[in-house]
Design a protein around this nucleic acid. Sequence first.
DNA 1: CGGGGACTGCGACAGTTTGCCGCATTTCCA
DNA 2: TGGAAATGCGGCAAACTGTCGCAGTCCCCG
Lengths: 180, 180
Amino acid sequence: MSTAALPSLLLVDDDATFCQVLGLALSRRGFDVHTAYRSATALQLVQTKPPEYAVVDLNLAGDSGLGLIAELLALDPAIRIVVLTGYASIATAVEAIKLGAVNYLAKPADADQVLAALAATGGDPTIPVNVRPLSIGRLEWEHIQRVLRENGGNISATARQLGMHRRTLQRKLAKRPVKF
Amino acid sequence: MSTAALPSLLLVDDDATFCQVLGLALSRRGFDVHTAYRSATALQLVQTKPPEYAVVDLNLAGDSGLGLIAELLALDPAIRIVVLTGYASIATAVEAIKLGAVNYLAKPADADQVLAALAATGGDPTIPVNVRPLSIGRLEWEHIQRVLRENGGNISATARQLGMHRRTLQRKLAKRPVKF
DNA sequence: CGGGGACTGCGACAGTTTGCCGCATTTCCA
DNA sequence: TGGAAATGCGGCAAACTGTCGCAGTCCCCG
C-alpha cells in the first residue's frame, strides 16, 4: 500500500504485545504507524520525521510519559498527542492536558476510541457529568496518585505523608486503578 | 491584617453548606470570597467585577459547570479557575482543562488543597505551599459522610453507590463516631 | 574512592478488615 | 395495612494491612 498520503502516527508503549495489536489496528485504519518502546527511541524517530499523531503510554520504563509529551511537542508543536495508560488518574490526566496532549484515555481502549480521541476538538462543554460519586477505591487511587505526584514519585515520602505503611502503598500501586 | 489587597475569589457550588465551610476557610486564608449557588448568579457577579480566582463545582443545578468555565473565561481570560466536584471523572477533567481551568479536584478536598490547586504552575508567590494531604482514612470518612448526606442518610443506597458492601459501610460508620 | 543515608522491590507472617451469607426487626409509603 | 426496603448484627473464609528483614541502587560528601 502507498504510504504517500497516509497520516503518520507514533506509538510509544513499553508493552510490545500491546504495541503490535494496537499498531496493526491503526495501520488497517489508514495510518503510517511507527513504534517505540521507550522515550529515547521515540525522540529519535521524531527528530528525523515528526509524525502527525502520537499515542503515548504513561508508564514507560525510566521517565514518565509526561516528560515525553513536552519533548515531543518541543520538537514539533503540531503533533496531536493522546495519552493512553493502564494507570489512569485525574492528576496525570490534568497534567497531560496542560502539557499539550489532546486527550487522555484509560486502558483498555480499542483503536476506534483512540481515533476518536485523536480527532477530538478543543473544549466541549457538553460532556455529561458523572451521575454517581467515586467509589471508595477509586477515590483512594486518585488521592494517592495526586500525593505521589506532589512528592515527585517518591513512594516512601508519599506513604509517610499519607500515614500509611510503605509496603502497603507499594501493594496498592502495583494494582490497577479501580473502575468507577 | 490589611484588607486592601485581598485577592478576590468566586465560589460556585449549589451545596450551600459546603460553600459556607469552604468559603470561610478561604476567607481566613486571605481571600475576598464571593459565593454563587448557580451559573447565572456567578455570571452576574463576574460581569460587575471579575475575580482573580474561581472555584466551581461541576454539577450545578441545570447546566454543568463546564459551560460556566467557558463563560467565565470569555468574560475575563485572566481568571484562574479550579474545578471541584464530587462526581469526578477523567473525561470531565480533560474537558475542564481544555476549556481553560487551571486544575481539577475531587471532593472531598480541604481549603489547602484548593489553594495549592489554584497556585499550580501559576507561580503566584503569595500563596503558601505548605500542604499536608488528608490521610487515606480521613479522606474516606469525609467522602462517606458526603455521599451519605446526599442519600439522606440511607446506608443501603450509599453502600450501593460507593460500590461497597453494606455490612462494611455499617462497620465503618459504627467504628468512627465523628471523631477527628 | 569508600561510606553513610535514603529509596525501592519483595518475601513472609500474624493480626485486621472486608465480602458475603442469613435472619429478626423496624421503616417507609403506595 | 401489606410488602418492599432498610437496618443491626453474628459468623466465617478470603483479602488486605502492618511489620520486619534483606538485598540492590542512587547520590552526596568527606
